[in-house]
Simulated assay, not measured.
Amino acid sequence: MLSCVDYLLCSFSDECGGFLHQFCEDTHVIKNLVQIAEIEFPVSYLYEECRSQEMLEEANAYFNSVLQEKFRARGVKNERHEAQPPAWISEEIALSIIDKFSTTNFTAERLPLLQEYECAAILGSTAPNMEERMKYLVYLLDDMDVKISHLFLLTGTREVDPSKYYDGSFEYIESVKEKYGVRVVSEKELMQDVHDRICKQNAICGEIDFNLIFALKDSGRATTIDTLMEFTKYHQKYHCVNTLYISVAPFIVYQNEIIAEFSNNYYKHNYETVGGKIDLNVIFSKQKIAHYLVMTFAEAFYAAQQRIT
């Protein structure tokens, strides 16, 4: 007998095969957090048998609204790091969240399934995340003997602000500005610098043909969908039969859902989303790390709605 929430969590986990099986096998991980957050959640959705499609749809809508309010807990225009951990995530609860999410593989490495790919793409982010992704690419080339013919660096419109984003110090941003002779540093220059410092210094990575993709927007910040749309212009030219997208935990699952939505709705293609495990020894507090995990889970679950329902 499955409750509606059991059914939803198992459907969410199923797309990732064995990678997130714990969310299905131990649905109490999320159920307990819902209760700890003191959410008024109908018991029938959590523990009673899901008796109809109507009941499932109602539970799904309610569950999503709860996750967005209590787990995501950040303003529409706020970046993840700008959000403050909600009051329900105490230090003790934070340690429990980190431990539980580690058992679900949400924080774990996800390896490629194939040995050769025509195309690989580094997904844009803040500079430290770009560095982690580029280092993971080098690891795949050197240690896993993965073969890649063409590399694409996906970036988009985002004015870099050292006081807002964790891209590095003011001195670092100024050095990038001077290096590329620009008045305003964007993700494009950050990715170029990361590629120069990490990929170009590696014997294998430095020899791979690469293209810098820049999704330009007249206003606002470019999204993953924007950069993917720009990337598709290169697929046929470079014969991207199999594409490897490189992210980093805990964003692997979330970005995989975005790419799946893009592939289903805009441009059908064969792909995998991989990346290294999360570094849990960063300078942030345990509460901040725990909030990152539940926030990203809520975003991934929301992004998966099209295939779940």
Rank of each mutant, 00 (worst) to 15 (best):
F301R: 05
N265C: 04
Y302I: 00
E272Q: 10
S263F: 03
N270A: 11
A303Y: 05
N265M: 01
I258G: 08
M295D: 11
E299A: 08
V294E: 07
K268T: 10
N264R: 14
A298G: 09
S285L: 03
N264V: 11
G276V: 00
N264C: 04
A298D: 03
N264F: 01
T296M: 08
G275H: 01
V274K: 11
H269D: 13
E257Q: 13
F262A: 15
Y271C: 09
K288Q: 08
K288F: 08
N256I: 02
T296P: 04
L280Q: 01
Q255S: 06
Q255W: 05
F262V: 13
E257I: 00
A290K: 07
V282G: 14
T273A: 09
E261N: 15
V282L: 10
K288E: 12
V253C: 12
V294R: 10
M295C: 09
L280Y: 01
Q287L: 04
Y266E: 10
I289D: 11
T273M: 09
T296F: 03
T296N: 11
E261Q: 12
Y254A: 04
Y267M: 08
I289C: 11
M295K: 11
V294A: 09
Q255E: 10
A298C: 03
I259N: 06
G276E: 07
Y266K: 14
N264T: 06
A300W: 11
Q287R: 08
Y302S: 10
F297I: 01
T273L: 14
A298L: 03
G275W: 03
F301H: 09
N264G: 01
A290P: 04
I289H: 06
F284R: 08
F297R: 14
Y271R: 09
E299P: 01
F284M: 15
E257R: 07
Q287D: 10
A304P: 03
N265I: 06
N265G: 00
Y271W: 13
I283K: 15
E299N: 06
Q305L: 01
A300S: 15
H291Y: 09
V253T: 13
E299L: 05
Y254H: 12
G276R: 05
I259L: 04
F262R: 06
Q255K: 08
Y267R: 15
S263R: 13
A303R: 02
Q287Y: 02
F262M: 06
I258D: 15
N281E: 11
I258S: 12
I278M: 07
E272K: 15
A304D: 06
L280N: 00
K277L: 01
F301M: 14
K286F: 02
I259S: 05
N265D: 14
V274S: 05
D279K: 02
A290H: 06
F297P: 07
